[in-house]
């Protein structure tokens, strides 16, 4: 009995080896339970005032309430719209530029140093400028997300492109490929799985910038919803807003992960 226990411990603490699925699930459930337990503990026993920290069940009720409210769905809808528009715009322009920078050294000289420079300017700091330029309409919010994602995306795509094995390119040259064919038949297909992972990361950034944009200047959307709740000291709704953004992020992230697996079954070691 003791021996078996030891063996289980040894297995659970082996470095970077698989553990049984049920033990993994156990870990996941325990952390979530613990999270709610601590949260509940603080709020139910009133260690922290309810105004600052609502009880978990109040938040769950408020969440259910919000989901029954069409206005809340409107907030979700407009936020998702902004995220996707900003993200897509960044992708449409950023991905080709990134691939160019990662493929041609000369193109790199135009694209990378500038992107490196702008990347360090916080996108949130552009908001006042964007409001001057583009007002406070949809364009402004989409622009904030775009600026936040675009330069980062270029750099990451360029890096992904650069990592495509040179031997793969040499091999295709000796098989008769010209430069165009090397780009479209070798570099891009080889790049795709990494690109998907990069997009997944950038999507996370897009959500961050969305909230930044909506907190500053909006009259709808999830960021605005949170902002409004703060004004009325409605902490429950703040929690609801944050949780919903988290859930949306999680759903999108999972979608990316599943797409990655389905689209690129050939990737070594899975995705």
């Amino acid at each position: 009995m003791k021996l078996q226990k030891n063996k289980i411990m040894r297995n659970l603490t082996s470095i970077r080896e698989e553990v049984p699925k049920k033990w993994y699930l156990f870990g996941v459930i325990i952390t979530f339970l613990l999270f709610f337990l601590i949260w509940g503990g603080f709020s139910f026993i009133h260690i922290v005032d309810e105004v600052f920290l609502p009880t978990p069940n109040a938040v769950v009720l408020s969440l259910a309430d919000s989901f029954g409210n069409p206005e809340f769905w409107g907030h979700i809808g407009i936020s998702v719209y902004r995220v996707f528009m900003g993200f897509l715009l960044a992708c449409v322009i950023g991905i080709p530029l990134g691939i160019m920078a990662g493929t041609f050294k000369f193109a790199e000289s135009f694209i990378l140093p500038m992107s490196e420079f702008i990347r360090y300017m916080p996108a949130a700091a552009f908001i006042p400028l964007i409001m001057v330029w583009a007002g406070i309409g949809e364009t402004a919010k989409i622009l904030v997300i775009f600026i936040g994602c675009f330069f980062q995306l270029i750099l990451m795509v360029a890096d992904d492109t650069n990592r495509v094995s040179k031997d793969l390119l040499y091999a295709s040259y000796t098989l008769g490929a010209n430069r165009m064919q090397v780009i479209f038949k070798v570099i891009i297909p080889a790049l795709l799985p990494k690109l998907m992972t990069t997009l997944r990361l950038i999507m996370g950034w897009a959500w961050t910038y969305l909230v930044v944009a909506e907190l500053v200047a909006a009259n709808n959307g999830l960021g605005y919803f949170i902002m409004k709740a703060q004004r009325f000291l409605d902490t429950e709704s703040i929690f609801v807003g944050i949780i919903v953004i988290g859930l949306l992020g999680l759903i999108i992230d999972r979608a990316f992960a599943i797409a990655n697996k389905k689209l690129f079954p050939w990737v070594e070691g899975g995705n």
Binding site: S165, D167, L168, Y170, A171, S172, T174, L175, A190, F264
Partner: peptide, 17 residues
């Protein structure tokens, strides 16, 4: 490079996709 001269590399250069 030319198709007339095929090459096999030490590293594996299969197109994995």
């Amino acid at each position: 490079p030319s198709v007339k001269r095929g090459m096999v590399f030490q590293s594996y250069t299969l197109f994995p996709w």
